[in-house]
Design a protein around this nucleic acid. Structure first.
Lengths: 347, 347
DNA sequence: TTGAAAGCGCTAACAC
DNA sequence: GTGTTAGCGCTTTCAA
């Protein structure tokens, strides 16, 4: 069943059917009605492939994430998909699982399907693999790391804002020895967070102790290992700031195993504010980087680029703030003598 | 740049280019070589839309999940996508977020994109919305709930197997009062789990106490609420089996808040074995239903159906076993007098 | 083995 | 306002 069939039955031309379906306003209402009637009766709907072929517009956006099984991403996917549907776009997701091979093949697939734009949510991983896309002037949106060139948008994350709040929050609670568990430092987003930490410390005149900065890998296991490291420091830190929530959860886990209590024995702050952060024990104080907002910005960036005639020569920038969300994993630093001090939490 | 361009430059016809690219064996190796050379030089690759249009095969499978932000699903998506890529298929994901509207629109989108098959991972939610797909004989694969008709496959989950192991494990640890927190009972998969629990209890002659079976909703919050309920029972249960891991995590959370220890004060078993189950404290003993295997089976079912000429009149069935994974959330039931008994865990 | 040509289902000029 | 028609880029007969 195709557009010709509809045209025949409605006794109009295929052009009229096409116009009707695409809601072109110049169609005579009476013809339109006839067309819709037949369309409904037959349950007809257009073939997207044919449409895409002739119009040159696939109405597909690509979405590359580094790992869908990382709790940070599902929310992004969800929101991105939601908005896409509203705009009649389809989305091609690929989870690269940190393998360059996968990245390569997914770029290829996206090119083959003629995506109109791609959101790259890999936070700094191997963008060189995207050369094919750039070459073909496919609109791209990156987080932080995109080059300044036409058709490439960037969502700049203001890491410092939230991290500063976190550091000052800890300082206000009289923490002097604040540790930082970073992500893998070859990722720009991880390096930027660490830098935010260092800057924030400097701003308030707290000396930087490199021994209190350990590298994790943004996983629970990494957080556990990092905290084990930190336990060997002397004196131990009284607060730990983590580069992401998964790391913080790893720290929590290790601390429980060791019988060290949060926030009584030390305070803990995460980063990202994944949904799970509310559900760990104690609920995790963390720097929020809204996944929903990120997805929205990314989609809008692509949509705008697709609709725009003359691309900005340096691309476009968007901004996303981060900010501290207080929960129950932070409290006053354990005083040198006092043993009685309580956090805001129940425990 | 299109196939004609390649043909011209390689001094062959477009048909030969097409055959070469599709690796038709009858092409003269020398011509093929010429073609490949040009293809490589120009970085040409075929337009999938055009291909799909003429061949009638989109090489797209749909994947409908009930909620991508539910930790059960990302792994399925990941594995499904992986296999799809290997077979040169693309996948169209939709997360219905439990809204019938979304389900409807996603079915529509899939039809428009001419998907060759759809995997429905919503565990019993509103399959009537899929009528359009059935009508058009699109191969479908369900978990548990599909109708027996041509082109519809079903993955039957052997819930009983794993649940029986769980119940017997608890019984062996001398638990007499075993509670069950179910999922939303209008979901067939949730009802089946509960039924497995009841059957397992009967098999070993333990009387069923309906007061110990409470309905949750497969979320952390639901688990917390359900456990609060259970706390009011007298005497309290010494073990709780949950319909999924999220529920169990809710139970854990509530119990921590109440200062009730696992497994010392009571034993807890989940269901699903999501990755997080290993990382909660204590690591959760749970009934595994392999998400990777589920994804594999679903993909294979679709692939087979697509390749098959004459569909089986009653569809095809696949089976997935469940089985208990021992971790550290279970231990001997607290004896009536003894206070000293320890689980297998460190704690 | 290769090429010419028809046509997949649709949109968009263009002519009326 | 509506219809005719020429393709979009590819695969696949059919003949040579």
């Amino acid at each position: 069943m195709d557009i010709r069939e509809i045209a025949k039955r409605a006794r109009v031309s295929t052009a009229t059917v096409s116009r009707t379906i695409n809601r072109v306003s110049t169609v005579d209402p009476r013809l339109a009605k006839r067309v819709w009637k037949v369309v409904d009766e037959l349950g007809y709907f257009p073939n997207t492939q044919a449409r895409a072929l002739v119009s040159g517009r696939s109405r597909i956006f690509g979405l590359i994430v580094s790992e869908i099984t990382n709790p940070f991403f599902p929310e992004i996917v969800q929101v991105f998909e939601n908005i896409a549907v509203q705009h009649n776009y389809e989305i091609l997701i690929t989870s690269t699982a940190h393998e360059p091979k996968r990245m390569e093949s997914s770029v290829r697939r996206m090119l083959e399907r003629r995506v109109e734009g791609v959101a790259v949510m890999t936070f700094g991983m191997e963008e060189s693999l995207l050369d094919d896309l750039k070459l073909r002037n496919v609109p791209l949106v990156f987080v932080d790391v995109g080059p300044a060139r036409p058709r490439v948008s960037n969502i700049r994350i203001d890491y410092l804002h939230g991290i500063r709040q976190a550091v000052q929050h800890l300082a206000a609670l009289r923490h002097q020895r604040i540790a930082f568990v970073s992500g893998p430092l070859h990722l720009k987003s991880a390096a930027a967070r660490k830098e935010g930490f260092v800057t924030s410390l400097k701003e308030i005149g707290v000396p930087i102790e490199s021994g209190l900065m350990v590298e994790g890998d943004h996983t629970i296991e990494g957080g556990m290992k990092a905290f084990a490291d930190l336990l060997n420091k002397n004196p131990r830190p009284t607060a730990v700031l983590c580069s992401n929530d998964m790391t913080a959860i790893g720290v929590m886990r290790k601390s429980y195993e060791e019988g060290i209590r949060i926030p009584d024995d030390f305070s803990l702050i995460g980063f990202d504010d994944i949904r799970l952060a509310q559900f760990v024990l104690p609920p995790l104080t963390t720097v929020q980087m809204s996944q929903a907002e990120l997805a929205r910005l990314a989609f809008q960036a692509l949509l705008k680029e697709v609709q725009r005639e003359a691309p900005a020569p340096q691309g476009t920038e968007y901004n996303l703030r981060t900010s501290l969300v207080l929960r129950q994993s932070t409290a006053l630093a354990p005083g040198p003598k006092s043993t009685a001090r309580k956090g805001r939490g129940k425990r």
